[in-house]
């Protein structure tokens, strides 16, 4: 059983952003960019735990909640897919432009509780972004964890995010299994959807926890596959998204039952989600 810690508090006004600078922009795919963010005096805005969230704003456009995918000594990073009004504005930024940042919000992946365990990370599309914060943590603390597997898939080679990580860095520390949905020229890796690849690999549920994030349809089928493979709901961990405005459990909209995704989530075990009303 994976217990999830639900505590986090920030001092001051939680709705007030700090002005930060985008110091590096990486084009991951045609519609995903990674933004490296630093305070104006060259510091890290705050130190998030793996899986925590931040409200990022283009101050004269709007703000939205994003997962933080990585952090360094003096920066945090978020990978953002272009899907709407604000993300379009973010994608139009240049290095050196200012953004507002507030956080960190929400709970985090159970990095302590999973010490000594094997972990299977499963990601689909941009869903690898939140999971990456935990993968990076696990690799940085490699001795604390057992066997690490990363199974990641996307529509096409071009849509795979974090290519340097998945092809160069991570294979040195964990087993990586990469797949794309349909065949394409120049790709000699696995072809097929994430859930079927999962079953093909036949991971043993013995001592293993699964950290899962991707589009809803992929999650639905992965859960079916994982259940078939013998993984219990307590050992499958996912991270959710909902529309959010405040990030601190007040503005109302991100609730699932009496839980707020911004505050009590975004990380839940499947067992916890089963106890909540079945919102879509």
């Amino acid at each position: 059983m994976v217990e999830i810690d639900h505590g986090c508090k920030c001092p001051g006004n939680p709705l007030l952003p700090q002005i930060c600078k985008v110091i590096k922009i990486t084009e991951e795919t045609p519609d995903v960019k990674t933004f490296r963010i630093q305070t104006l005096d060259g510091k890290k805005p705050f130190t998030p735990l793996p899986g925590q969230l931040a409200m990022i704003s283009v101050l004269n456009v709007g703000e939205a909640m994003f997962s933080l995918t990585a952090q360094g000594d003096d920066w945090i990073e978020s990978s953002i897919k272009r899907v709407g009004f604000l993300t379009e504005a973010l994608h139009n930024l240049f290095e050196g432009d200012l953004v507002g940042v507030r956080g960190p919000y929400g709970n985090h992946f159970p990095t302590e509780e999973l010490k000594g365990r094997d972990i299977l990370f499963v990601g689909g599309g941009i869903g690898l972004a939140p999971v990456r914060s935990f993968i990076r943590h696990a690799i940085a603390h490699r001795k604390d964890y057992g066997e690490l597997d990363v199974l990641y898939g996307s529509r096409s080679y071009g849509d795979l995010v974090f290519k340097e990580d998945i092809f160069d860095h991570w294979p040195k520390a964990c087993n990586t299994h990469i797949t794309i949905d349909i065949e394409e020229d120049g790709w000699d890796g696995h072809v097929g959807f994430v859930p079927s690849y999962l079953e093909e690999k036949a991971f043993s549920p013995e001592g293993k926890a699964v950290v899962l994030c991707g589009p809803p349809i992929m999650i639905t089928f992965c859960l079916i596959s994982l259940a078939k493979m013998g993984f219990s709901k307590e050992n499958v961990i996912t991270t959710l998204e909902m529309r959010m405005k405040c990030g601190v459990g007040k503005c109302g909209r991100c609730n699932i039952g009496s839980k707020y995704v911004c505050l009590d989530g975004p990380v839940f075990t499947m067992a916890e989600l089963e106890d909540l009303p079945d919102e879509q």
């Binding site: 709705l15 101050l59 004269n60 456009v61 709007g62 703000e63 405005k245 405040c246 007040k250 503005c251 109302g252 909209r253």
Partner: peptide, 17 residues
């Protein structure tokens, strides 16, 4: 329940709820 929006004038403005 509240929404957060902004009244913008170029590079300055007010965030309101």
């Amino acid at each position: 329940c509240f929404d957060i929006g902004r009244e913008n004038r170029g590079k300055t403005g007010t965030a309101f709820r």
